[in-house]
Every structure is written in structure tokens, then in C-alpha cells.
Design a protein around this nucleic acid. Structure first.
Lengths: 249, 249
DNA sequence: CGCCCGAACTGACCTGGATCAGTGCGCTTT
DNA sequence: AAAGCGCACTGATCCAGGTCAGTTCGGGCG
């Protein structure tokens, strides 16, 4: 993983007596908080965290084939992962919002199988994977959390594999974004997306023209209001109804 | 996971002095063999294995929503995993041949997210997941192997997500089967598949009619010879060329 | 302020594969 | 051996979404 010219610091924390404060945007820290480990273990985990960034728009975090050594939780910004096929066409694999973890797919072969790029200014919490795996042998809760993250990604990857219509895909994409923003305390109804129409189209396996058309039709039907990157979901009910096959509900 | 009315036995092994024999079809045992652990650890792992089966054709191994507690390596036969959507249509998620591991996607939510059914007579090596996870905390090699299996499935799931043509999908499917059979010491050129055309179609997100047509066209073009479930690949080169976008080579 | 450039939008047309509507064929059942 | 059944195959037709060919818009810059 490449480190931007910004600062790299070990995780700042305060340890004022009994209370032990975590960076709340860090998925691992919070995972461990919830599994109720003792202070000594928590501190060990905490020491492994490096805050890196900012990566600026278009800057790569890792590239396909880079040796795998770290995973990272997004602290702020949006990360896109993608591969390019033999003809040079881009296939977007996923978008990662704050609180989500990138790099896990690199474990199996010791190399990242895809590229990760910042779509806007990005800050990361970075963890050495060997170190965190070693710590996991002493912290069953952490091991379990890692297993769960990996397993979840298997299920996520299967989502868009079905043969769904353009409408279903778009609705599922919007509902998923909405929920993920909401989970971070942001509005579930209105948000700014960091990706271009082309990125969205590549992710959903549609042509960018189709993305445009579906946006307009959804707007005509009163499901949403869209102005460039600014999206407001007006009829979340109906969007969820459209998305339910894709999201398996 | 449901257990068929067949025998369930703990893993038989012989421990004649220095030599310690493993069931060679068991993915975990071999994984641990290769990571070079000491005899005491190996025996611990070995004790966790249960041989179950046979499951007969059409019999379910687990169902969507069942509480997750075990993972299993296929010892013989073919397993299909699938989900059904709201309209009752089946979506095939994967086929598992001997040596491959089912159930991993159940980790994240404590329930299996899909159904697993035997397509022909199936024998399994079954492992309690809590037990194997506990053991993994004392065997970093085993933990690493579990991480790798999970991570690999993420990459596998992403494979068929792209927008590929029917020809590319079919070729990739055949080449993948060929390699997996070959890895088990069977012929890479000729094999009997356990799945119906409809299963193949559902897996590849095609109509079964399309699967039939592509089979015939491939046969007309001399790429293969197919007679019901019996498939012989005549031009592996060309099939691999067709498949390379899907398989990312 | 006007120019430039890339993203977004839009309409016209095309096509791969789905769908529909059969037919054929091997296996089981009786 | 005949009947019944389910899977496989095949031809005809249809349509969602891709492709192509522009046009519009907005933001950055000389």
C-alpha cells in the first residue's frame, strides 16, 4: 500500500484513568469495544492503528498485484476498487464509505487482486495484517470480527451477480448508499455521492447512458430528485420495494 | 446443518508410532499438514472432523436461515448452493466439488444465507466452526488458512458479476470445472457433470435455452463434444482464450 | 469574459439473449 | 410394451439495454 505525502501518525488516544477513548470512526476499535475486551488488549489493538492520509482525488491506495500487507478502515471520503480487463475496460468492484474496510480480498494470495483509488480526499485507519492476525490469536473476539468481515464481503459480492433490471440495480444502489450514510449518522434521504455516472454504470454493469436515463425516469416518477452529485430520495418506500430482490429482503 | 440417516463417525486415523495418517480428501487436514504443525496440534484438529453422509441426490445439507455452526469440506459428490428470490425463482450461487469448503458465508450473521443441496451422492468432512475457530487461536497456520479460504471466496464471487457474453460465461464455467477436476487428479479433458442445464443456466445467469444453444455451437465449432452430462473438451486452448476475461488472466 | 474540456444528457437504432411454443428422447412405472 | 414425465433441444419472436452520434452544461483557466 502506498502512503501519501500527508502525515502518518500512530493512533492518538487519551487514557485518562478508567476511561479509554477510541477513534469512533475506526471499525476495528469499535468492534473490539463491543466485544468487551480488557484494557490491556484494547491498548494493544490501538497501538497497531496508523492514521494515514489525506489521499487526494485520483490517488491510488493500492494497486493490483501490490504485495498484501495491510487492511484499512476508511475514516473519511470514498474509495473505489476496480480491476481492468484485457481490453483495458474498467470493472468497478465496490465503493467504500467511512467505517468500511478495504484490502481484505488481498489475504488469499498475498497480493491485492484489485486497485483502490480515492474518489475524493480520503483518510484511512491502517492496520498491518500480520500484526492484527497475530493479535487475533490472543483475542477471539477480534478473530471473530475478522471472520465476520470477510464472510460479509462474500455475501456482498454475490449481490449484484444476479440478473436484475437496470431499475432494480439502480434502486438497490441508492438504497444501499442511503443506509450506509444513515449508519454513519448522515441523512438517509439526501447525500452527495463521490462517483461519476460512469463509475456507477461500471459498478452496476450498465452503460452510463442507462444510468442517466434511469435517473431521469426515477425523477419524472417522483422517486427522487437529482442534480449532478446531489441526490435526494423522495420515495424511499418505493425504491426499497424496487431494490428488494437485489438486496434479498 | 442436517445430518443424513447415514453414518456419522469421527475421523478415523491411524497413529502408528511416528507416522500420522490423514484423510487426504480433507482440505483442512492437508492445509495443516502443509503448515507444518506439531503432532499434538494435528491430532487436535483431526479430532474435530466428522465424516457424514451419504447425502443422496436432492437432499439438503443446510437451508437458508438455519443457525450456522459448522463448515464442511466436500469429500465426494457435488454440492449446489442457491437462494430463492421473492418470486420463488432459484439463483444458483455455486457448485462445490470434492476438496472445496461449504458454509463459510454463514459466519457473518450466524445463519446460513443460502441453501446447500446434494446434486448426487455426497460425503462430507464436517467441522464445528466454534471449535475450529478456538483451535485457530492456538494455531496461526490454521487461522491463516481460514482467512485465505474466506478471502478467496470474495474473489470467486466477484468473477461472474461482470457483464460477459454467454460464450464467455460458458467457456469460463467449463475451464473452471476442468481445472478443479484436474486438481483432484481427474481428467481435465473429459468429465461427467452433476448439474442439469437449468442449474448451469441459473448459475451463469442465462436461460437454459441459451446454454443448450451455446453447447451445440461449441460442438459445431469443434471446441467440445457433449452428450447429456458427459463433456469432453476438445480445444482447451480456445476455451481458455474465450474464458480469460471472466477468469481474469 | 470567452474558451475549452470532460461529464452528463438525449434520441435513434441495433442486437444478444430472453421468452414462448413447441418437439424429441431417454427413464421410470405399470 | 405402452404410457407418462422431465429434461433437453430447436425455431420464431420480442425487448431491455447497449451502441452510436450528437448536444448541453458547468467549472477551470488564460
Amino acid at each position: 500500500m502506498s502512503t501519501p505525502r500527508g502525515r502518518t501518525t500512530s493512533h492518538p488516544y487519551s487514557d485518562d484513568g478508567d476511561e479509554f477513548h477510541f477513534c469512533t470512526t475506526c471499525a476495528f476499535s469499535s468492534a473490539c469495544l463491543s466485544s468487551g475486551y480488557d484494557k490491556a488488549h484494547l491498548r494493544e489493538l490501538h497501538v497497531l492503528v496508523e492514521h494515514v492520509g489525506p489521499y487526494k482525488e485520483g490517488e491510488h491506495i493500492f494497486r493490483e498485484g501490490d504485495p498484501f500487507n495491510v487492511i484499512a478502515a476508511v475514516r473519511s471520503g470514498t474509495v473505489k476498487t476496480y480491476v481492468t480487463d484485457n481490453e483495458g475496460r474498467e470493472q468497478v468492484l465496490g465503493f467504500f464509505l467511512p467505517g468500511e474496510v478495504i484490502g481484505l480480498s488481498g489475504i488469499s494470495h498475498g497480493k491485492y487482486p484489485c486497485n483502490a483509488v480515492a474518489l475524493e480526499s480520503v483518510l484511512l485507519c491502517r492496520f498491518s495484517f500480520p500484526n492484527i492476525a497475530a493479535l487475533a490469536t490472543r483475542m477471539p473476539g477480534l478473530q471473530q470480527r475478522l471472520f465476520a468481515l470477510l464472510s460479509e464481503d462474500i455475501n456482498k459480492a454475490a449481490l449484484l451477480a444476479g440478473n436484475f433490471t437496470a431499475d432494480e440495480r439502480m434502486a438497490a444502489f441508492l438504497v444501499s448508499l442511503s443506509r450506509r450514510y444513515a449508519a454513519r449518522g448522515l441523512s438517509a434521504r439526501r447525500f452527495m455521492v463521490a462517483m461519476t455516472r460512469t463509475d456507477i454504470a461500471n459498478y452496476l454493469r450498465l452503460a452510463s447512458e442507462t444510468v442517466s436515463r434511469v435517473f431521469r425516469r426515477f425523477q419524472d416518477e417522483g422517486l427522487l430528485r437529482v442534480d449532478r452529485r446531489d441526490i435526494e430520495l423522495l420515495d424511499l418506500e418505493k425504491l426499497e420495494e424496487l431494490a428488494k430482490n437485489v438486496l434479498r429482503e
